[in-house]
Design a binder for these strands. Sequence first.
DNA 1: AATATATGAATGAACG
DNA 2: CGTTCATTCATATATT
Lengths: 182, 182
Amino acid sequence: GRSPTTIRLPEAEGLVAVRGQVMTDEQMETLRRQISVYATICQQLVEMHKATMAQQHALSGLKYGHTSPLDSALNSMGQKFASRQRWTPSQTQLQILEKLFQQGNGAPSKQRIKEISIELSQYGQISETNVYNWFQNRRARTKRKQQGGSNTGELEFDTDVDSQEEKRVCADRDLSNDGTTS
Amino acid sequence: GRSPTTIRLPEAEGLVAVRGQVMTDEQMETLRRQISVYATICQQLVEMHKATMAQQHALSGLKYGHTSPLDSALNSMGQKFASRQRWTPSQTQLQILEKLFQQGNGAPSKQRIKEISIELSQYGQISETNVYNWFQNRRARTKRKQQGGSNTGELEFDTDVDSQEEKRVCADRDLSNDGTTS
DNA sequence: AATATATGAATGAACG
DNA sequence: CGTTCATTCATATATT
């Protein structure tokens, strides 16, 4: 049966290992991060070891193989797991998305997004979230380009530096409302 | 920065990443093995490093710095740097918030928020608004995910098409909420 | 290979 | 509260 072996993970992450249960996406993500930390640690340790070996090599005049079993171990696991792969739209999908963006520019409603994603799923793996993100990014970056392009430089805080502060000031607006719902 | 939801696992393990769904025990087991490997590698590397260092130390009579690779690794991954416009919760803060969220699920009262923010201020710059927003976002996004998860995921079968671009794609976290609201 | 850029995704904050 | 915006992060791709 499922071994109840809980693995000792860095407490930094606060991961909760659910024994014998299913995991949610959320937990999955947390786990991925955990593994990511290990991956980073491993990489750094490998680097240190190599450096040390190189030193020793220089001192003793001995030669050592550059291929460590650890390297192969790391490579075998590599980024297979720890790295997150992201959706890459196919050419066809991109074309359609682009066309849609130029047509009915505004932000597509959820219903619309669902339709779009269903249509695009014919041309490759895709989810509604992908479509949603795509439009979000597209809009944001178009806007940013227009702003940035019209200006000589990005770092221009000539007159009104306080404009940044304005946004932050709206801070306590909602907090005055006592959340008695709990 | 963070990421998606569905994770690509080594196919060799036979794990099937279910889109937007929960994990099975089997998948969990695979994860345990994965982490196990990393843990083992880390231990071995630490041992090797220590041994090497000791040797080198004995040979050269030099002392070596006590800079812990583990610390630096964890730090490098964690909070990159604190100087940013918008609040970025530290690892510790996130842990606590997450724990609180899972415990007393409801929306914290204004009073509670104040307490929390005071406690969290020990672990980094934070305001009550930050806490408030965090809970708001956390709730909203959790709910959205659940809605997406309940969606039984349409089978998207890419028959042929121009599957040249077809790369292993993992995408999910639906925002599918029938646009019945607006 | 190493660096630069493009871009999908995550998230704090803001809006209605 | 649900949705949207703006910014940032991480990775895929392009370039040298």
